[in-house]
Structures are given as C-alpha cells and as structure tokens.
Measured scan of single mutants.
Amino acid sequence: MEVRTIKVFTTVDNINLHTQVVDMSMTYGQQFGPTYLDGADVTKIKPHNSHEGKTFYVLPNDDTLRVEAFEYYHTTDPSFLGRYMSALNHTKKWKYPQVNGLTSIKWADNNCYLATALLTLQQIELKFNPPALQDAYYRARAGEAANFCALILAYCNKTVGELGDVRETMSYLFQHANLDSCKRVLNVVCKTCGQQQTTLKGVEAVMYMGTLSYEQFKKGVQIPCTCGKQATKYLVQQESPFVMMSAPPAQYELKHGTFTCASEYTGNYQCGHYKHITSKETLYCIDGALLTKSSEYKGPITDVFYKENSYTTTIK
C-alpha cells in the first residue's frame, strides 16, 4: 500500500517557510505537534488534498525554529505562539472599519479597549522592536488589523473576551517599542525636605499616572512627601515624541487643539466601556464603527496623549 502524501510549508514567522512532505494517514499533531492554519487549530486533523502548498504555523520545537521565533517575536515564552494563534482565530472574524481616516474595530468580545489602543497607536510616533509587531502594525494602518490585535493580546497575556485596560495595554506595548531616546527629568520640591531631581528613561519617561493635564504637570502637581507634608512635583525636561497622561476616570474637559487623542471610560472596574476622542479640525468621538463630532467635550476621561518633541522648564 502506497503512502499518500502532500507537500506543505511549516513556519513560526510566515517569513521562513520549511518544506514538509506530510503523510495523509496521520494527523498534523502526530507529525508536527500543535499546528495552526489561519489561526485555526488543526492539530487533530489529517492532511487533505486542499492543504497542498498551504502554510501551517507550528510551535518552535527545534533550534532553527526557536531562533526564527525569537528573532521575529522577541520572546522565548513557549506558550506565546499558541496564544497568538488562538487569538487570531477570533480577531480574523472582527470587522476593521476605516473611521475618520483611522483603522478602528467594530465592537465584539469586549474589544473596546483594543480599538482605543489601536486608534491611539496610529496617532503617536512609535516604532516597535519585534519585527512581528512592526509588520502587523503597518498592515493594521492599511486596514488589516487582525494579526496586530492578536499579537497585542498575546504580548499582554490576554484572551479574547476578557476586559482590558488601555493604560495597561499601552504599557505592555511600550515595553516592546523603541523608547531608548526618551528621557524625563522631574523635580520634587518640599518646604521641609528641599528639592530632589529624578531622571527617568524609556517607558517611565512617557507615562504618568495622577493627572490628565500635561500643562498642569509642567506647572506642578501636589504629591505627598515622605515627611508627610505636601510637596510639588513638576516637569523639568521632556525628550520624547509623545507623552501619555493618565488618571482614574473623572469628568474632564478636553479643549480642541490642546491634545492629540484621549480615552474615555464609562462604567466601573468590573464592567465598563471605552471610547476614543481625537482632536482634528474639530473633536471626534470614535466608538467602534461609530463616529460623532463636537466642538467641545466633557466626560469621564482616563488617558490623554500629547505630541511632544523637546521641553525644558522655565521655572527657576
């Protein structure tokens, strides 16, 4: 009895394709271990004539594949690729409408935090270190965002349907971005203890939790000093293409032309909904596939993004 075979390709990165001759009487799992086709788990399936010449994702289970996976995804987590594939199996079914010149995501599976993050990423200057993220990001900007969303979920250790947080998501993504040249110098002034300067680099240099107003941050924000008295913390120097200011959701007025974009969060910790506000020729609110415009805006804002380049204080 002759062994019926077909020729397929296996890959971990969709760049390096490895030619395989597979036995049609055995499952993919018996031949390769966990195997995925377009995100779908085909591990328990036997090869079919229609699979001839198709590319299958496999887990990096030998040295060659491990090197290829690390170079593309910059992670050695053995569960990463499987999590990416199972997320992709959902995100490829989502709709990605162009809204006001940006790629958004039609609401499904509690994905409003991903839509808000995706919209924000198209408006701030950011370059990702893992080629996987950078490639998928370019495709997302062009309207094909399924891979990018699935990668975000995998890097953030999230599953489809789980509630997510924009600030946490951005923080994970910033860790995989090139923020080497970003720098922030802060000064804390206390009447009792004097003053202390701190220099922050990388992710810490672009994120701040405690106030939404970048102007206020430049002037000074009140913080408790270690001595128990009130101290003032203010920005001395900022070198970065953008800054992200966050605070627990509270009524906040966004003035046209003073910011790049913002995240609105309605609801409580267990259950809520994100919308995205962007400042173009007027203010726009993007909620999944829905767009509304207004000249002014007041609502429960939790993150505001500002364009920056270089700032030095005039406070002496």
Results as ranks from 00 to 15, higher is better:
E2G: 15
V3G: 11
T5N: 10
I6L: 12
I6D: 04
V8A: 12
V8D: 08
V8S: 04
F9D: 10
F9M: 14
T10P: 09
T10R: 13
V12H: 09
D13V: 04
N14S: 10
N14M: 02
I15D: 11
H18Q: 10
T19A: 13
V21P: 10
V22M: 06
V22W: 04
D23R: 11
M24T: 11
M24A: 13
S25D: 11
M26N: 14
T27D: 13
T27R: 10
T27E: 14
Y28M: 00
Y28Q: 04
Y28G: 09
Q30L: 13
Q30F: 04
F32S: 05
F32P: 03
G33A: 11
P34C: 07
P34T: 14
Y36D: 08
Y36M: 05
L37Y: 14
L37V: 10
D38C: 11
D38V: 11
G39P: 06
G39S: 13
A40G: 13
A40L: 14
A40N: 14
D41I: 10
D41M: 07
D41V: 06
K44W: 12
I45P: 09
K46D: 11
K46G: 11
P47Y: 08
H48G: 13
N49D: 13
S50D: 14
H51C: 04
H51A: 07
K54D: 13
K54H: 13
T55K: 10
T55S: 11
T55Y: 08
Y57Q: 08
Y57T: 09
Y57P: 03
V58P: 07
N61M: 12
N61K: 13
N61Q: 14
D62E: 10
D63K: 12
D63S: 15
T64M: 06
L65S: 12
R66T: 12
V67A: 14
E68F: 02
E68V: 07
A69W: 00
A69P: 03
A69M: 14
A69H: 15
F70W: 12
F70G: 11
E71D: 11
E71A: 11
Y73W: 01
H74M: 12
T75P: 04
T75E: 09
T75S: 14
T75R: 10
T76Q: 10
D77Q: 07
D77L: 06
D77S: 08
D77V: 02
P78Q: 11
S79V: 12
L81T: 10
R83M: 06
R83E: 04
Y84R: 05
M85R: 05
S86E: 15
S86R: 11
A87S: 08
A87Q: 12
T91K: 02
K92Q: 10
K92D: 08
K93R: 13
K93L: 11
K95C: 10
Y96R: 09
Y96F: 11
Y96S: 06
Y96M: 05
V99N: 07
L102W: 14
T103E: 05
T103P: 06
S104Y: 10
I105D: 00
I105W: 01
I105Y: 03
K106R: 11
W107C: 05
A108T: 09
D109A: 05
N110D: 02
N110R: 08
N110W: 00
N111A: 01
N111G: 12
C112N: 05
C112Q: 11
Y113I: 04
A117H: 02
L118K: 07
L118R: 10
L118Q: 01
L119W: 00
T120M: 02
Q123N: 03
I124L: 14
I124W: 09
E125T: 07
L126W: 06
L126K: 05
L126D: 02
L126E: 03
K127W: 06
K127C: 10
F128P: 04
N129I: 05
N129M: 04
P130T: 10
P130D: 09
P131C: 05
A132Y: 06
Q134L: 07
Q134E: 12
A136L: 05
A136H: 10
Y137W: 07
Y137H: 07
Y138V: 15
Y138R: 15
Y138C: 14
R141I: 10
G143E: 01
E144L: 05
E144S: 12
A145K: 10
A145W: 03
A145T: 06
A145C: 08
N147I: 08
N147H: 14
F148R: 03
A150K: 02
I152M: 12
I152S: 00
I152F: 15
A154S: 11
A154L: 05
A154N: 04
Y155M: 07
Y155K: 09
C156F: 04
C156A: 09
N157W: 04
K158D: 08
T159Y: 10
T159F: 11
V160T: 02
G161D: 04
E162F: 05
L163F: 13
L163M: 11
L163C: 11
R167G: 06
E168C: 08
E168N: 06
T169S: 00
L173H: 06
H176Q: 11
H176D: 04
N178K: 11
L179F: 02
S181W: 14
C182F: 05
C182T: 07
C182H: 06
K183G: 05
K183F: 07
K183Q: 00
R184V: 09
V185P: 05
V185N: 01
L186Y: 15
N187Y: 04
V188R: 09
V188W: 02
V189L: 08
K191A: 14
T192P: 03
T192Q: 13
C193L: 06
C193Y: 06
Q195H: 10
T198C: 08
T199K: 03
L200T: 09
L200I: 10
L200A: 10
V203H: 10
A205I: 00
A205C: 02
M207Y: 04
M207V: 03
M207T: 09
M207P: 00
Y208T: 03
M209V: 15
M209D: 08
G210N: 02
T211G: 08
T211V: 10
L212D: 04
L212S: 07
S213H: 01
S213Y: 00
S213C: 06
Y214S: 00
E215W: 05
Q216C: 07
Q216Y: 02
Q216A: 13
F217L: 15
F217K: 01
K218L: 03
G220Q: 03
G220Y: 00
V221C: 07
Q222A: 09
Q222V: 08
Q222R: 10
I223W: 08
T226F: 10
T226P: 13
T226R: 14
C227E: 00
G228T: 01
G228Q: 11
K229N: 14
Q230S: 12
Q230Y: 13
A231H: 02
T232C: 08
K233M: 15
Y234M: 07
V236K: 01
Q237F: 13
Q238I: 02
S240M: 00
P241N: 12
P241L: 02
F242A: 02
M244G: 02
M244F: 00
S246M: 05
A247G: 09
A250K: 11
A250I: 10
L254F: 05
K255M: 09
H256G: 05
G257C: 02
T260A: 10
C261H: 04
C261K: 07
S263W: 01
G267H: 04
N268T: 15
N268F: 04
N268R: 04
Y269S: 10
Y269V: 10
Q270C: 12
C271M: 14
G272C: 03
H273N: 02
Y274S: 04
K275D: 00
H276W: 08
I277W: 15
T278L: 10
T278Q: 10
T278E: 08
S279Y: 01
K280V: 07
E281L: 02
T282I: 06
L283T: 02
Y284A: 08
I286T: 11
I286C: 09
D287P: 06
G288D: 00
A289H: 15
L291P: 00
T292L: 07
T292Q: 08
K293W: 07
K293D: 00
K293Y: 03
S295I: 07
S295R: 10
S295P: 08
K298P: 06
K298R: 13
G299N: 07
P300L: 11
P300V: 08
P300R: 14
P300H: 05
T302Q: 08
D303M: 11
D303V: 04
V304E: 11
F305I: 12
K307C: 10
E308K: 02
N309M: 07
S310W: 06
S310I: 15
Y311S: 07
T313V: 10
T314A: 11
I315H: 15
K316M: 15
